[in-house]
Write a protein that binds this DNA or RNA. Structure first.
Length: 628
DNA sequence: TTAAAGATGATGCGAGCA
DNA sequence: TGCTCGCATCATCTTTAA
């Protein structure tokens, strides 16, 4: 590992511009705006961090703040020495995993300690409520936290419970807040925003984070929702600060620490969410489509926090599990998603949600307009199209195609009849055709779309994904995961007049470069593009496109979104200028309806990378604010 | 060893109906 | 209002073939 920066100091992470004002005394990383204690503005992050925390209690506190128990940290330091943060962290992660796989008592205990409650409190709560009842334990812990503020109750707990630096700071900072025990008795422990703030701080969260969470989640949010919000932001911060390119154990820790509370929140959300779930519009035209139904909205007021710079544009599947878009919107500054079906732009459906802060007036489509029906797009199929197949649009172009054996079965089923087949056969054939987007290529003969036809339907240049050693399967996979260029271009078209000299683009999860192609086709000059994409195949495709189209700007490839931390962003922005646009469509694997195995929502292994989009966007936002 | 094929539901929504 | 049904869905895992 290159280093570790989480800890009390790193709680000052700049995920909200207002927090920035509160940062006083400690480096997040070696960014110039957060100078190191020794005066260095830049340098090795690992060295800087080590120098900042590698001494006795501070080192212990550093890891305790990350959610590890003091005993674990002690043990790890004893076994590995104080000098090697990497070994210590690895040992802690190992212990955490072992604990999670161990007896339920240890898992439960570690879970709540990991949430920030002191071990004495957790032990007491488990003893009183039974280890199996996590809801009651959490309630008890929150109550203890409230009561602990009362001098009479303080004696019930060991002194170390209220002796943390965080606690002292908190008490200092909020000594003017009048929170009497009477109020608590009258109003309950978590009735007011102030009390929620107190609870969160007691749980070990930083007050700045807690304030932002309360603001973002709303006054009626539960403590669980707030902890979820803060945890997600912290997770992203931890990953940013801790994760070197080749390592992933932090992800495991992240899952271990957050899994239970996130699951619980998901469960609660499902029960209570009917009123707050974002409904998909019908027709799905967002804020309007060219030559389509009348736009439902021609002007919108963005929340102040959402306004650029930079502009941002986030995309994902519209048909995500319940509550997902509510969460995405909440993180992305409460901007209302724009749900659009690309069937209004091309001959294939693609229902997607877009959260962005772009203007919605004076949009224009890419020219020439792409074909809008199957027959326009694939004229050779018209000759073979049976009258009983009434499809004019294809369904969503996915990552897999129908097999040759399936098309052969269909051919044999149809060959038994001279004329129109019976309804049962028609239904079988049409179901399979809809499911696999099969088209008619001969008498009784259907076939899946060729990769270049998918490229055309999605608005990419012909052979965009061809060559470079990519397999046919991978071509379909890359295309199935990409943007529909005409749709995205319509939304981004407003940038053309705003940036006549071109733009600096940060493209996260850029895939085969849908946003880049859209901007290029719009005539927006690409000055600098920082493209973050995990797939080497996709990076090669985009690099090839960049060279083929004779781009004059600079393309910077980054493999892993978690490599993109404050230092790297600072370095890039110092050299190339601030980003004008941050685009990203984070993985949908755990959101897509086609996923039969791990449709886990935003907590899923891949789809949780949404939080990295948020983390990086917020970092860029803060950096630009600081530059102004 | 790698690519392709085949088997595998769950979820959410709207339409239709009682 | 609540139920059933039809439909669509940026997929994943195992087996088979090349």
């Amino acid at each position: 590992m290159a280093g570790s920066t989480s800890g009390p100091e790193c709680d000052n992470f700049d995920w909200d511009t207002e927090d920035e004002l509160e940062i006083e005394n400690f480096p997040l990383s070696s960014s110039s705006r957060l100078p190191l204690p020794n005066g260095e503005a830049r340098g090795s992050p690992a060295k800087a961090i080590l120098s900042a925390v590698s001494s006795g209690p501070k080192l212990i506190d550093h890891f305790v703040r990350m959610g590890f128990s003091e005993e674990m940290v002690d043990r790890a330091i004893q076994e590995n020495g104080e000098d090697n943060l990497d070994l210590i962290l690895e040992a802690l992660l190992r212990y955490t995993e072992t604990a999670a796989a161990g007896p339920s008592n240890s898992k439960c205990f570690d879970h709540f300690v990991g949430m920030g409650f002191c071990e004495t409190m957790v032990a007491k709560a488990i003893e009183e409520n039974g280890e199996g009842n996590t809801d009651s334990i959490l309630e008890a812990l929150l109550t203890y936290s409230a009561l602990e503020k009362s001098p009479q109750e303080q004696t019930h707990f060991e002194s170390d419970y209220c002796s943390s630096e965080c606690e002292e700071n908190f008490l200092d900072d909020y000594s003017d807040i009048d929170i009497s025990s009477e109020d608590e008795e009258t109003n309950g422990p978590v009735n007011s925003e102030t009390n929620k703030l107190l609870f969160l701080v007691k749980m070990g969260f930083k007050e700045g984070d807690a304030l932002v969470a309360i603001e973002r989640c709303g006054p009626d949010s539960t403590v669980e929702e707030l902890t979820d919000f803060i945890s997600a932001a912290q997770v992203a911060r931890d990953a940013d600060a801790l994760l070197p390119p080749e390592d992933t154990p932090i992800l495991r820790r992240r899952q271990l620490l957050d899994r239970d509370i996130l699951r619980k929140k998901k469960k609660a959300r499902v029960q209570n969410e009917d009123d707050e779930t974002i409904r998909l519009p019908k027709p799905m035209i967002g804020f309007g489509v060219p030559n389509g139904p009348a736009a439902p909205l021609t002007y919108r007021n963005l929340p102040e926090a959402a306004m650029g710079p930079p502009y941002f544009y986030y995309e994902n599947v519209a048909l995500a599990p319940k509550g997902v878009w509510t969460t995405i919107s909440r993180f992305l500054y409460d901007v209302e998603p724009e749900f659009v079906d690309s069937k209004y732009f091309c001959a294939a459906a693609r229902k997607r949600g877009y959260v962005h802060n772009l203007p919605i007036q004076n949009r224009f489509p890419l020219l020439p307009l792409p074909p809008h029906t199957i027959h326009e797009a694939l004229p050779l199929t018209k000759k073979w199209w049976p009258s009983w197949d009434e499809r004019t649009k294809l369904n969503c172009l996915q990552t897999c195609i129908g097999s040759a054996k399936l098309t052969e079965r269909i051919r044999k089923a149809l060959e038994q009849y001279d004329g129109v087949p019976p309804l049962s056969v028609q239904k079988f054939v049409l179901d399979e055709c809809r499911k696999w987007n099969l088209v008619w290529v001969g008498r009784n003969k259907v076939a899946p779309l060729e990769a270049d036809e998918v490229e055309m339907l999605l608005g990419f240049p012909k052979n965009h994904t061809r060559g470079g050693g990519i397999s046919r399967t991978d071509r379909y996979k890359s295309l199935g995961n990409s943007f529909q260029v005409d749709t995205v271009a319509y939304h981004l078209s407003v940038l053309k007049d705003m940036f006549p000299e071109g733009i600096n683009l940060l493209s996260l999860f850029s895939g085969i470069g849908g946003a880049e192609v859209a901007l290029h086709r719009l005539g927006v000059r690409l000055k600098t593009v920082v493209s973050v994409e995990i797939s080497e195949v996709n990076r090669n495709i985009q690099r090839s496109w960049w060279e083929q189209t004779g781009q004059k700007g600079r393309l910077i490839d980054i493999e892993d979104v978690q490599q993109l931390n404050a230092d790297r962003l600072e370095e890039i922005m110092s050299n190339c200028g601030a980003f004008d646009l941050v685009v990203g469509g984070s993985p949908c694997n755990n959101l897509a309806g086609s996923n039969r195995h791990s449709r886990d929502g935003l907590e899923g292994k891949e789809s949780s990378l949404f939080y990295d989009y948020f983390r990086i966007l917020d970092l860029v936002k803060c950096m630009i604010t600081n530059r102004q």
